[in-house]
Design a protein around this nucleic acid. Structure first.
Lengths: 345, 345
DNA sequence: GCGGTTTACGCAATCGATTGCGCAGTTGTC
DNA sequence: GACAACTGCGCAATCGATTGCGTAAACCGC
């Protein structure tokens, strides 16, 4: 490729008054014509629109945003409180984001992705105030519960992906994590497993609910939870693998694993395999999410499916209803157990 | 959750003149103080900054953008010319996007995701003119070559993810697709395979180069390409699966597959399996990308690794150099063969 | 203590589109 | 033919921050 010459911006960008001059009208008329304002007669409108197209004119969004105090943009904000790398390494987030983006752009809004590496109590307030977007979707309820409550007190177009928590005033949308945890664990118990590990970052509200479901299922079967079987593990990195390896090294006996994500489940299975155990023959494993990995891995993962497209659609639906001034309740979407090889029926 | 009362925006948002009044200075001074302008003495600066923080003041970005004609935003634009669903269903795109987002936000820029469902010759020009972003990254060179050339003629901060094509004036960054195709096919040939399918959407420039590499390798081994072995297949959907199934149904003999993506490879392997063939015993398969799926699937995929973090870093680096007024050449990044089970050494 | 320099900050224009209000010209009504 | 209503469009204010230029006060050296 030829190295292009660096040249100054070719002249001045064409603006509305230019079109106005050419059309022999005022810029007010051009503005109204381009906005399909009904007070401008059809004929004038089409003439001006044609002229604008011909000259490659496009409304300057910065100017319009300022004047109208709205941006036709929805921000998807990710507070990276607990896991710095969440965004790039978490396939679940990326999938959700993809669907959110689809829903939003179908409504002719732009999508602004905002990462907040060091959220404090007011990051959301600042974000809202900066007027970069008309509404906000927060992915990563995690440790932001208070900041979210604070912001939701006087800002309405805000929807959070996450669970419904006790003292919550913001609107959240998420899966039925409790039921997911219960389903997964119940399935393991029904298939005869008795000593079941829980693997996951229980400090996150959504995961904690999965853990609650796990406890519930165990209780329902007349058993009691062995707290040493509840192990922390991160979505990424080797923590799940290491935890399982250490357990096996200490000859702790268990016959099932409920992992808080498919990634954690696979990581655990790899640890089992390298210790000579087999899944599902020796140990059954149930994951969470039903990501692409779940169906393609070996063994294929039994897992709890989250309805990602449904979640995205609901979030965006709530958000736009709020943009219209409506109030919306939080929503919890159903999950389902997907049976595959790693924990057969 | 309690349904919150819909209340009007609490008063008026605090603006710069408010801070100015409180501080007893002019808004010019506040502006300069907040921008850490050196003509404002340290003491005044910190006072004003403290005041702003205390009152929760944040600069209105729309106003700033208009005045400065810059947005501190990079747009990632995806023309959905050929595959409508590309964004949400393509894990490769999402992974690349994640890394791009990281690189961009590290430079304290925001990320605007723009989907263009129906690109025409001028969509990029319109996008650029709308002044929504300071620079653009285009993902999906696909059928946009001419539109890209057109836009690059007088707009510089523009970098394209894709291959270097003959009459190209825009700056592109991508993997060495030709070498990837050659490596993959050469590996199959060296392991004794002779009748190798190519599966992929060769209408895309990057894929076409992989096909060129495939042809080259076959030629290098003194064989000639059987054009009936070059089969179209989409990244998503059942086309790869169906193509392989039909071939097997017609009893066409082949012993290797080079697939243009890991997803296509897996889809092909599933088709082999349902026809009672085994991979790699009967047929070796090589994929492309080295996605998460490749290492977790069964059989684990031999594949060509694209350096996604490297690509993202290079794209963003080029873009910011261009923002500074520098010219940059197109870049091609190396790929490597990752040996796994589906096509053992 | 005086001319000259520096410091600290304000005035007012500016970015480009939108929009409330009003005016001129036309049409309609009796 | 007089008056009202309506149509089509322009004037000028506005959105909120930034910034070139100017000026008053402070400071400096001799």
């Amino acid at each position: 490729m030829e190295l292009e010459k660096v040249r100054p911006k070719s002249g001045r960008a064409v603006k509305m008054t230019d079109i106005a001059r050419i059309a022999g009208v005022s810029s007010s008329t051009v503005s109204r014509a381009l906005a399909d304002h009904p007070t401008i007669p059809e004929a004038t409108r089409t003439t001006i629109q044609a002229l604008a197209r011909e000259h490659g004119y496009v409304v300057n969004r910065a100017a319009r945003n300022l004047r109208q105090s709205q941006t036709q943009t929805i921000a998807v904000a990710v507070p990276l409180g607990h896991e710095r790398e969440q965004l790039i390494s978490d396939p679940f987030f990326l999938r959700l984001f993809g669907h959110l983006a689809d829903e939003i752009s179908q409504r002719r809004y732009d999508i602004l992705l905002v990462r907040e590496p060091s959220p404090d109590a007011h990051w959301l307030g600042r974000l809202v105030q900066s007027q970069r977007a008309d509404g906000f979707i927060i992915v990563g309820q995690s440790d932001q519960h208070q900041a979210l409550n604070l912001a939701a007190r006087d800002y309405r177009p805000l929807v959070v992906f996450g669970s419904e928590l006790p003292d919550q005033i913001y609107c959240s949308v998420g899966s039925d994590n409790f039921e997911g945890g219960r389903l997964a664990t119940d399935h393991l118990l029904r298939s005869g497993r008795r000593r079941i590990l829980f693997l996951g970052p229980a400090e996150l509200p959504q995961i904690d609910l999965r853990l609650d479901g796990y406890r519930q299922a165990i209780g329902d079967h007349g058993l009691s939870v062995d707290e040493s079987f509840v192990l922390p593990a991160h979505f990424t990195g080797p923590s799940a693998h290491d935890a399982v390896r250490d357990l096996l090294a200490r000859a702790v006996e268990f016959d099932g694993i409920f992992a808080a994500s498919d990634g954690i489940a696979l990581s655990a299975i790899r640890a089992l395999e390298s210790a000579g155990m087999r899944c599902p023959d020796d140990i059954s494993v149930v994951g969470f999410d039903d990501s692409d990995l779940a169906s393609q891995s070996h063994p294929a993962l039994t897992t709890i499916r989250q309805d990602v497209p449904g979640i995205a659609a609901t979030i965006v639906d709530h958000l736009f209803r709020r943009l219209e001034g409506e109030g919306t309740y939080s929503s919890t979407l159903p999950v389902s157990l997907i049976l595959r090889e790693s924990a057969p029926g």
